[in-house]
Structures are given as C-alpha cells and as structure tokens.
Amino acid sequence: MASVHPSAIVDPKAQLDEGVEIGPYSIIGPNVTIGAGTKVGPHVVIEGHTTIGKDNQFFQFSSIGAAPQDKKWSGEPTRLVIGDRNTIREFCTFNTGTVQDKGVTTLGNDNWISAYVHLAHDCTVGSNTIFSNNAQLAGHVEIGDWVIMSGFANVHQFCKIGPHAFVGMSTSLTQDVPPFVLLNGNPAQAHGVNIEGLKRRGFTREQINAIRAAYKTLYRSGLTLEEAKAALLAQEAEADVVASGGDVHVRAMREFLDTASRGIVR
C-alpha cells in the first residue's frame, strides 16, 4: 500500500504503486503514475500526464509535470517520463513536452538533480548524469549519459551534449558539445577531455589515450571540421585503437559530429 500524509491531496485517478510515500501538503494529479518505492517529500506538486518509475526521491517544493513554458502549447496532453532511482532536490521544475516536437520530456535512471534545476519541454536527459544547483535547460535539449552540468550552467534550445562531457560552472552553451569534452566559460570553450570522469567510470588508459588523440584531431590539429571527420575515421581503424576498444569511443565522437545541428563548441 502507498503511504499518503493526511494533508496531501492525491486525485483518485492517480496510480500509486506499492511503497510510494507522499509527504505533507503535496498534490498529485489525476494523470500521474508513480512507481514502487518512490518518495515524494512535502509541498511537491506532480501534475500533467506524468509517469515516474521506481525508487525515486523528490525533495520539497518541486513542480513536476507542469505545462510547458511555450506560447505555442494549446493544452495538448503531452507527457513527462521519469525513470528509476533518481534524486530530485528542492525547487526543481520539469515540464511536459509539446506537439511541435516529440511530445514528451524524459529523464533516465540514476540521475542526481540538485536544487533549482529546470528541464524545459521536450528535453531528453540520459542516465547517471549530475546537475548541480541552478543548471538550466531550454526546450528541446538532449543530454547524454554521464554528463555533468556544474552550477548555473545553461543550455540554449535544441543543443546536444554528448555522453561523458563536463560543463563547467556558469557556462553558457549555444552550440553542441561532443562526447568526452570538458568545457567552461561564457562563451564556452573546450579545455580538453574529461579524463578524471573517465577514470572514475573504469575507462582504461588505452581507451583514454584514444579519446585524447581524437580530441587533438578535432581541436588542436588546425583541420577543418570535414577534414577532422576524415581523420577520425582513419583513427578508428588503427590496430592499437581497435585492440583497446578505443575505436568505439572515437566512433562515438565522429558520429556525434554528423548529428550536431547547431555546430559544435570549437
């Protein structure tokens, strides 16, 4: 059975799985589904067509599943989908999607979302990310797995950030960020590979060396973007890179360049 505080308001149509806890003065709307073991703290509002997985924790004063902050939205039943084992701290705002895009905002699994984080409409956030306080995403942003967003970092609409990238404090992003890249500043500038993060996640020395070589090809060789893509393709095929598994990561960086719709921070 779910545990609901007497002061909370839970619509009878809401679906709460076993072990869900709803704290004092929280409000749960009729189109909300919450998975087993999820804990909702006090003064949290969860509304809209929102689906939440298992074992999440919502701290106080967050607004989850509210209408998108988009003047084109006309009341369509768009969605917010949140995965499992996420921690969402105080005063976060997650909006549903719009029909002008996928119609859904998504957050994956095992993310750590600090206070005052905003996920706008139609954002896609992967798994194992960290968002520090006041990190802000505009609409239609895509964030890969294992990305770290430092405090007060903000991302322009339609930008993409590749897996394992690190975005420094107060960085303002208006272009896409390839995988593994560490960047900072306003305007943003690349400052190397997120080596410390890769070490923590078990990347081997050979794999990291392959990624560093790919970074130098893209950022330090003086090649045009098209020339750098060709050089990365050749680097994928090198015997030592393939043997170490580094070719997979070089390929990920090269293929990201083909999908970068706003150009890359370079």
Rank of each mutant, 00 (worst) to 15 (best):
G185Y: 05
A188C: 00
P187H: 05
R205P: 02
T217E: 08
D240C: 04
A213Y: 11
I195K: 11
A188D: 02
V241I: 14
R212W: 03
A237F: 09
E226C: 03
E206C: 08
A210W: 00
V241A: 03
R201I: 02
A190N: 13
G245N: 06
S244I: 10
E226Y: 08
N184A: 14
A230F: 04
G246N: 04
H191C: 09
S172H: 13
A214C: 12
A234N: 15
A230K: 08
G192W: 05
A190H: 08
S172C: 14
L198F: 12
Q235F: 12
A243K: 14
V181P: 00
N209V: 06
P178G: 08
K199Y: 09
R220L: 11
I211R: 12
P187D: 05
S172G: 15
S244F: 10
P179A: 09
L198Y: 12
A234C: 12
R220F: 03
G202N: 11
E226G: 01
E226I: 13
T217M: 12
A210R: 06
F180P: 06
Q235N: 02
G246E: 07
L218G: 08
L232T: 07
A210Y: 11
N194K: 02
S244G: 03
S244V: 03
G185T: 11
I195Q: 06
V241T: 04
P179Q: 08
Q235D: 00
A213N: 15
D176T: 12
L198P: 11
R200W: 10
Q189G: 14
I208S: 05
T204K: 03
E238K: 14
G197L: 11
G192C: 03
S244C: 04
L173E: 06
A239N: 12
R201G: 00
A188W: 00
A231H: 02
A243V: 07
S221L: 04
L198A: 01
A190D: 07
S244T: 10
T174R: 00
R200C: 06
Y219R: 01
V193F: 13
